[in-house]
């Protein structure tokens, strides 16, 4: 099964799902960060140019520091998220899903020099595009992943109506499917709703004509009372 999501099993037997991010969103995040830095450079040069040669020197030092430490500082002090990554919903973590450390962040960002070769991050982009975990060289060396920062899932309000317990005891995945059906039914066409519900006719729903309503009622029962 091809997927961009990998499950990390913790010692407690809990699966942590990490969804790695590919070159396109990562490239856009980089571009956004670059634009932010560019704005800062232009501002700095405009201000420091008043000091003539000394000011230009200062601006160059500032540019050096920003260019190399802007991602490091944001990643380590802001839970692996630079402003560009925040806009795209990305963040950097270690391979095991733990927050990125100073070491790893420094390595992955200093190795941008290698990913940049021969020009404009071509090597890093291509390597990333051809790897299942979408790592560029810096990520490989530092043992880091760029993943989607999952927001906590929100409960959807279900259309009001009767609730009824399923007639058979269901497994977790099956309960989730029933709940997903109840949540997403309003966005499906009525024909599709009926088609899906009819799949479960003798087992969960009694009659084909009322199958949708029966499954929705069971979904509401699984969702529990609304608060």
């Amino acid at each position: 099964m091809l997927d961009t999501r990998t499950a990390l099993e913790t010692p407690e037997g809990i699966d942590l799902n990490l969804t790695v991010a590919g070159p396109i969103p990562r490239g856009l995040a980089w571009a956004l960060d670059f634009l932010i830095r560019l704005g800062i450079y232009i501002g700095l040069i405009l201000v420091l140019a008043q000091l003539e040669a000394f000011g230009i020197g200062l601006a160059m030092i500032a540019a050096f520091v920003l260019e190399w430490f802007y991602p490091v500082l944001f990643e380590t002090l802001n839970h692996g998220v630079t402003p560009g990554k925040k806009a795209l919903g990305l963040k950097v973590v270690h391979d095991d899903g733990s927050p990125v450390s100073w070491n790893a962040s420094l390595i992955r960002n200093l190795l941008r020099a290698a990913d940049f070769l021969p020009a404009f991050y071509a090597l890093g982009s291509l390597i990333s595009a051809f790897r299942p975990d979408f790592k560029r060289l810096g990520d490989i060396a530092a043992g880091t992943l760029v993943i989607y920062a999952d927001k906590p899932p929100q409960a959807h309000a279900l259309p009001p109506g009767e609730a009824e317990a399923p007639r058979v005891s269901l497994r977790l995945a099956e309960q989730q499917a029933l709940l997903a059906f109840a949540e997403r039914a309003p966005r499906l066409s009525p024909e599709r709703q009926a088609e899906l519900a009819r799949l479960l006719v003798p087992e969960l729903a009694a009659r084909p004509e009322t199958a949708v309503q029966e499954l929705l009622a069971q979904g509401r029962w699984l969702a529990g009372p609304t608060r």
């Binding site: 099956e174 059906f181 599709r192």
Partner: peptide, 23 residues
């Protein structure tokens, strides 16, 4: 997948297979 709830269809088919077999 979003419009036609393919994931739900797959889950329902699996559910039916299990329940029918069990029954």
């Amino acid at each position: 997948t979003e419009l036609e709830a393919w994931d739900i269809e797959l889950a329902f088919r699996r559910m039916k297979k299990r329940l029918a077999g069990g029954l």
